[in-house]
Amino acid sequence: MSKISYRQALKDAMIEELERDENVVIIGEEVAQYNGAYKVTEGLLAQFGPKRIVDAPISEAGFIGMGIGASMLGIRPVMELMFWSFAYVAWDQIINNAASVRYMSGGKINVPIVIRGPANGGTGVGATHSHTPENFIANTPGLKVVCPVTAYDAKGLLKAAIRDNDPVYVMESTILYNSTGEVPEEEYVIPLGKADVKREGTDVSLIAHGPSVIVCLEAAEILKAEHGIDAEVVDLRSIRPLDEKTIVDSVKKTSRAVLVEENKPFCGVDAQIAYLIQNQAFDYLDAPVQRISAIDAPAVYSPPLEKKQLPQADVVVKKVLEIC
């Protein structure tokens, strides 16, 4: 095991897959000469050359649509979105074409494309750059979406995404790029659709994805130290496919659930999780399922307010104390 950054883990995943499969190509804005807007692709141009690492113009509908077309012919493009917030200018390609071509062709075509990039708030870039569209993606049959939080998960999930024959959208976090974690030397892949219990506990299940997992881990420590409450933290990792078993098993064990995400509340991912829990663990619940989402407004710029708008450990603690 060695300790590497989340950023390095993503890069290592791409390097290994570029070496493994000559059809893998990295395309995106600033990914080659500039070495990546967030340096995730740093050094790849020098290592693999301009055929495999391609700078695209600022033209998301054009180059992502182009990647979808190329993937129909068997190319495996890994497209970088500088921010997932920029997906909206390419929405027709990302939602309509990538998700529907297989279905509308009666299964004659598949679209083995990966789109990856950061999808998070909390960095002071305002409403246009702080979107977390994993709920929109998960709402679209034909697409898969994962949200890795640790270096280990980032590498294993991105490798699985690149090998997948369906479109897989990987949502990262600019806040996490510099975080570090243990990653094994030997090769590994994490199957999509497998949640991970990041902290075991017995009194309440904190169920989260994306940067909110970090918030929940922090809250769990406070709950333990200050209130003697032993919280379990379940990281969904993959939104669609969804590991329902791990979620339900955890709630059956703790009998209480607080769901935490950066999505806005209405039709956020956790609305689906809440339904799942009441449907499959109703008799085990000792309290109503609770949700903490981003405060229901466009992402505010003002730094102290933006901090308040997103899930915070003290809010999670407070919510847990209401039901424990």
Binding site: R102, Y103, S105, G106, G107, N110, P112, P141, G142, K144, A160, R163, D164, N165, D166, V189, P191, L192, G193, K194, A195, S238, P241, L242, D243, E244
Partner: peptide
């Protein structure tokens, strides 16, 4: 014909619902 993987269960790599 929604997902390639669901149509090829013998080659399915992912888990979950």
């Amino acid at each position: 014909d929604v997902y390639w993987e669901e149509d090829h269960p013998d080659q399915k790599l992912s888990e979950g619902r």
